[in-house]
Write a protein that binds this DNA or RNA. Structure first.
Lengths: 254, 254
DNA sequence: ACCTGAACACCGTTCAAGT
DNA sequence: ACCTGAACACCGTTCAAGT
């Protein structure tokens, strides 16, 4: 961190007769790594929508055209960002005796990392993983299911379903937080107020058209992001395990 | 359809001395309904990304500013589009004896309607339903679970989880189809070729880093959108039903 | 090889002015 | 009340020109 500007030394005055370049020159030579780092900084500070080619370029003290030497376009930049984020996910060493709990722990870890980078999960939705770190995560999930005796076909479907669940949940979690308008004080307070408005709206609904909804206002507005996550995760893992039980029944199962 | 231009008669010549307005005048008075109809036409033809305020205005023969009298902005337009689409979903009359199968049928119906309107499901993701037709769908889901004896708290979590699953699945389904570049022939052929490239890429992965993935190339690239949907749906509904069984055990259950 | 200024073809939203 | 032209502050990407 402290040595980031070595070599460029922008703190040095310009020698006489050696006219300075147009503006502050790029401190470091542009690299793909630097572009992705910068993009993630913008993501963390302001969310995925703020990560534009122009904005990232500006942050690097250059123009948008310069990025295209290191990245094929916005889509690739987003995928590189996701893979970089995926590198933060800590992966388990499979222990066949606790594969279900490990699968849940891994899911919680993915959720933690995703939601710590705003709405990065939007990029993951409907993306076939090809980046090295995203593939590490898939490998870990599949290895756990393999250790648990889940048939290959089921495991293949399950990574996909689990991925959909994780992406959707992370997006849900962060978009609620992010709905706060730019200068509207504390996001949490704002969201609570928004939830209260929803509660009022639901309570005011015509009871003849929406009898069930009307009687469930509290249950439907309980927020409860964690509860929803654990509920869905538990169903998913139990479902996956049920196939493992079927497959291993002849061999005897705990 | 044939009577759309009544009243405006753009086929009449302009009477002498009655200077024509700038371009073709708006044929029909602008209404929110007309704006939403037009937006959905653009959606169906070119996908959600093509639905811009400017594009919809152009389609209506006016400028983008004109839309703001009928719609507060792009976000509201998108939500109105989704609710209009949700009106197409056929809802069941609950039959307590087959509530699980009905819940599945409803999920398939939602999937059918969503995927028939390109990537409209993107709008649904992370949106609290407030439109009348979206609420009809939620009411139907909750009524089915109520008929099945699912506890309120579980039913509340389940609509949310089921919604996440349906949205994610519909997005996955349509984004694959939509990845086809503008003038690249048949989308299905294109996607098959893309899948083959993925297969090759997976097969070429280093086996020491990705031992499990390497041994599952076929299972991971089986496409199988329907299979994945039924797999996830079955797990979800079985999971929900397991809570109903717990709750109704004292009363005796079929 | 890498970088860039300028341009192209777009965005959403606002606002004063018209009818 | 409804509609609009013009403007504002943005987009992603391309390309010829520079170093």
């Amino acid at each position: 961190m402290a040595e980031a500007d070595r070599g460029a030394r922008p703190d040095m005055p310009t020698p006489p007769g050696r006219r300075p370049r147009k503006a502050a020159p790029a401190r470091q030579p542009l690299t793909q790594e630097l572009v992705v780092d910068t993009a993630i900084r913008v993501l963390d500070a302001e969310g995925l929508e703020a990560v534009t080619m122009r904005r990232v370029a500006q942050e690097l003290g250059t123009g948008p055209a310069s990025l295209y030497a290191h990245v094929s376009g916005k889509e690739e930049l987003r995928e590189l960002m996701l893979d970089r984020v995926a590198a933060e996910i800590r992966l388990p060493v499979p222990d066949p005796a606790r594969w279900q709990e490990q699968l849940k722990e891994l899911a919680r870890e993915i959720r933690r990392v995703y939601t710590s980078h705003r709405d990065i999960a939007v990029v993951s939705m409907a993306l076939i993983p090809t980046g090295p770190h995203l593939l590490d995560v898939a490998e870990a999930q599949l290895a756990l299911m393999h250790a648990g005796g889940v048939p290959k076909r089921i495991a293949g479907l399950a990574v996909s379903t689990l991925g959909m669940f994780l992406d959707a949940d992370a997006i849900e979690d962060t978009l609620h937080h992010a709905k706060t308008p730019a200068g509207a004080g504390d996001p949490w307070t704002y969201f609570q107020e928004y939830l209260n408005q929803i509660r009022e709206y639901f309570a005011a609904l015509p009871k003849d058209r929406y009898p069930t909804v009307s009687g469930m206002v509290d249950e439907l507005t309980a927020e409860d992001g964690d509860g929803r996550f654990e509920f869905g995760l538990d169903m998913l893992v139990r479902g996956i395990a049920s196939y493992a039980a079927e497959a291993s029944r002849p061999a005897g199962d705990g």
